[in-house]
């Protein structure tokens, strides 16, 4: 059979529709991409355009839930958020396996694809947890608590509920500098936002807009951080394992000045 490249819109809904089309058209899939140029370049496979359709997506989601539960579906969503180049194809292969098996095949840790899904879920979950931990709000003079992050994976959708539940009584914004979008909470609901291209968001430009007391509390936190360290027990290897260097630039306690 002629193998195909699936071209989809890059959304989760589109991803689920890839699974739908796989069954609907009985496709042989070589790869899945949201990049039009890439799809056109392939020498051996012809492209197949997947159209996003919420009804189709829902049917796939329901079908997966019936086989592997909400957990199984959530795991695949995590893999999607990893943005790894081969994630869409892995999701397709694993979903097809789940749908063709009896219930709960998501626990088959001996299956190669299932295992890879688990490993990616583990990495994405770790990043989600790190963002819950490492986000540092800076209070701006307009009263908003602002945080700049650059997570390895697209984990903002995974942390929005956590921050909404926790900081229910303060305006906050979390901005992903890598993916150029953020979440903004206004005491009622969360909206996605992005800045126009001429706006430069960095720790320097944020500091210019600090509220009066921000300097004091940031400094108190740094002093606290240094005071609780026990020098006799220094263990930098363990320190780096927990707080890898790539996160330091957005952690005020790891700033070198002062």
């Amino acid at each position: 059979m002629n193998s195909r490249i699936l071209l989809y819109d890059g959304t989760w809904e589109g991803m689920l529709c890839c699974i739908f089309d796989y069954f609907d058209y009985k496709l042989q899939v070589e790869s899945i991409t949201s990049n039009q140029d890439f799809a056109n370049l392939s020498l051996f496979a012809s492209p197949h355009q997947v159209t996003s359709d919420s009804e189709k997506a829902n049917r796939v989601a329901k079908g997966l839930e019936a086989k592997v539960g909400k957990e199984g579906l959530t795991e695949l969503w995590h893999v999607f958020l990893s943005e790894l180049p081969h994630a869409p194809l892995l999701i397709l292969k694993t979903a097809v396996y789940y749908l063709n098996q009896d219930k709960n095949s998501r626990l088959n840790y001996g299956h190669e694809d299932v295992l890879e899904v688990k490993q990616i879920v583990k990495s994405v979950s770790r990043e989600r947890h790190r963002m819950k931990a490492f986000i540092r709000f800076q209070k701006l003079n307009n009263g908003i608590y602002f945080a700049l992050v650059e997570p390895d994976f697209d984990v903002l959708p995974l942390i929005r509920k956590h921050f909404k539940d926790r900081y229910a009584d303060q305006h906050w914004m979390i901005y992903d500098g890598k993916r150029k979008y953020g979440l903004s909470y206004d005491l009622e609901s969360i909206q996605e936002f992005s800045f126009t291209e001429d706006v430069n968001i960095s720790n320097k430009t944020i500091a210019i807009q600090w509220e009066e007391q921000e300097d004091l509390y940031s400094d108190l936190w740094k002093r606290y951080f240094n005071a609780v360290n026990i020098k006799e027990r220094k263990n930098m290897k363990l320190h780096l394992q927990h707080v890898p260097r790539r996160y330091w630039k957005h952690l005020n306690e790891k700033e070198l000045d002062k």
């Binding site: 229910a168 020098k231 927990h242």
Partner: peptide, 20 residues
């Protein structure tokens, strides 16, 4: 709609001795 909640526990930083 107050401030804060508790959950599974989060280590917000680690000191140079590796403690949370």
């Amino acid at each position: 709609k107050g401030l804060g909640n508790t959950g599974a526990g989060i280590c917000h930083s680690y000191t140079e001795d590796g403690r949370c």
